[in-house]
């Protein structure tokens, strides 16, 4: 990995209009999620109580995205859905990323049987399609928000282990590692102080790309009825619920689906921009 100062990376990032579009979408979604209480026109529609005088209304000035089967404002629920999706993505990654990174460092630097055990375990996890694995875990756990997050976390760390392992294997051959060892640095010092900062560009890029994928994964679980349970507003379960009323009440599925798309697209474009800017090998 080439060493680049952050200002060079920023200049490169800024010159790519697609990356900037990603950044704008991401900031937009995060802002909506943060200020949901203030922005949404009908914050009381988060719960199970709707307005029975206005069920299944098509998009109008009063309800931009229409209303659902019990008269709740769809725009309100989509914005709260952003909040939940982002929160889950952050929680899932804030557990799986550090775990994966530490295991990758240990496997890559220590080698020997540590490497063998950790990397074969990683291979086993990576060999199973992620959604299938998450569904299998959800199969014998009650379908709750916490369990859905747990399932996604369990299948997510191996990607970081594999990524960091590869970066460590190439960095460990660099002279600075030998130089640190020769002046008597301990293994933890070499791993965490010397090598870890050099893994940061790759890990941060993957992190940005992954927020989108985790949102997609959690939504898929909810769509299948294995994740978030009603009445909590969740983009995936909203798409699933609305699918029954297609094509007459088309807005019930289309708008939540578009919302997922915007969120995932934003993070993917941002992640791609970062990858190019840092030359990271994700």
């Amino acid at each position: 990995m080439s060493a680049k100062s952050s200002s060079v990376a920023w200049t490169e990032f800024r010159s790519n209009p697609i990356s900037i579009l990603g950044l704008i979408l991401v900031v937009f979604c995060i802002a909506l999620a943060l200020f949901a209480d203030v922005i949404t026109p009908y914050p009381e529609h988060v719960g199970p109580i709707g307005d029975f005088t206005a069920i299944n209304q098509a998009p109008s000035a009063a309800h931009w995205f229409g209303t659902d089967t019990i008269g709740r404002d769809l725009l309100t629920r989509i914005i709260y859905g952003f909040r939940l999706s982002l929160l889950m993505a952050v929680l899932v990654l804030s557990i799986s990323m550090p775990v994966g990174v530490i295991l990758g460092l240990l496997a890559g630097y220590l080698g020997g049987w540590v490497e063998f055990v950790l990397m074969r375990l990683t291979d086993i996890f990576l060999a199973i399609p992620p959604l299938v694995l998450a569904m299998a875990i959800m199969g014998f756990l009650p379908a709750t928000l916490t369990n859905a997050m747990l399932a996604v976390t369990v299948m997510w760390w191996p990607w970081y282990t594999r990524l960091v392992y590869n970066v460590v294997r190439s960095e460990a051959r660099e002279g600075y590692v030998l130089a640190a060892e020769v002046i008597g640095a301990s293994s933890p010092h070499v791993m965490f102080r010397e090598i870890l900062p050099n893994c940061a560009p790759a890990v941060l890029t993957k992190l940005t790309l992954d927020i989108g994928f985790v949102v997609l994964m959690v939504s898929s679980l909810s769509f299948l009825g294995l994740g978030v349970q009603p009445p909590t507003p969740d983009l995936g379960s909203m798409v699933a619920d609305g699918a029954k009323y297609m094509p007459d009440a088309w807005w019930l599925s289309i708008f939540p689906a578009l919302a997922i798309m915007v969120l995932v697209l934003g993070f993917n474009l941002l992640g791609d921009g970062l990858r190019e800017a840092f030359d990271a090998e994700v």
Partner: peptide
């Protein structure tokens, strides 16, 4: 030898640029 490395005994390497960690 551990406490002596970097003090009573030190080393210089082939490639000076790779021997210095780029992030510091």
């Amino acid at each position: 030898m551990a406490p002596e490395r970097g003090h009573r005994v030190t080393m210089i390497f082939q490639d000076p640029t790779s021997a210095l960690n780029p992030v510091f």
